[in-house]
Amino acid sequence: MTYLLTSLVNGLVFGLLLFMVSAGLTLIFGMMGVLNFAHSSLYMLGAYLGYSIGRWTGFWTALLLAPLAVALLGASIERFMLRRVHRHGHAQELLLTFGLALIIHEIVKLVYGPYPVEYTIPTELARTAFNVNGLNIPLYRLFIGAVAVSMFVSLFLMMKYTRVGLIVRAALSQPLMVESLGHNVGFIFLLVFAIGAALAGLAGAVAGAFYPTGPNMAEDLGSIVFVVVVVGGLGSLEGALVASLAIGLLTTLTVGLDWTLAGALAPLGLSGWAASIGGPFSITLSSLTGSLPFIIMLFVLLVRPAGLMGERA
């Protein structure tokens, strides 16, 4: 019971974090058709900038400035790099962001070294929020969750009720028609890219204080974020939220389960035979936690390529 509760909280928080990073990615992909490999690198930069700025200004100011800096970087990437290669097609854009991810990874290693930095949570949040059955839930986990939820709500309201949100939603399906109605689609692309980058940066600045801030954090999260975007459906914020939570919960809940394929064959009386073969039959579900998202993604891509809530494939 206690195990279930911790897993639930951890899974929810991790899922919300995933959502913060994938929200921007799914919007950018849905609207511009660009699969941004560098998106999780922006998340990592958010964490490192939060750490660096925080040493001068304190945690809270850094939490504001780091995402802004990342947004500025995202905007420059769109304006000066992506727009340049746009006429060569989506593959070229994808390669560009792929290269950028490599560069950012190396620059972070150059500046901060190969090991994680000591980015820690501020003392006022370094407490236990509450205690259930002798189990402590750290306040900071709830803080991460709260940031993600308020972000989702404001993003949702912006998309639903503002004019910019309306134009963004329209541009997700018919960018050229939006331009033909007199709107500046180029600017909307820039804006979406900047907002997506800011969200990733914010996620990094918040999460980096809790999880380790190291040069591999982009790589570790990057492919899972792709999974979220595909499973949720490209361009769909609601889909991204559902997929993030599902994958967050799934990965934390399966950590403690030592089911095996051999065990599953027990009702057929084959478990002894399967266990003797070993290999894939004796791998426990818990050790598959890292692989699970990719299995889900393959399944979704093959069965329902538009994703859970996608409008089109």
Binding site: F29, G33, L35, H90, L94, S223, F226, V227, V230, S291, F294, I295, M297, L298, L301, P305, A313
Partner: peptide
């Protein structure tokens, strides 16, 4: 397209 790229990536990660 991009979906092919993502599937190959997912297989590799798997």
């Amino acid at each position: 397209g991009a979906y092919f790229s993502m599937i190959t990536l997912a297989i590799a990660e798997l």
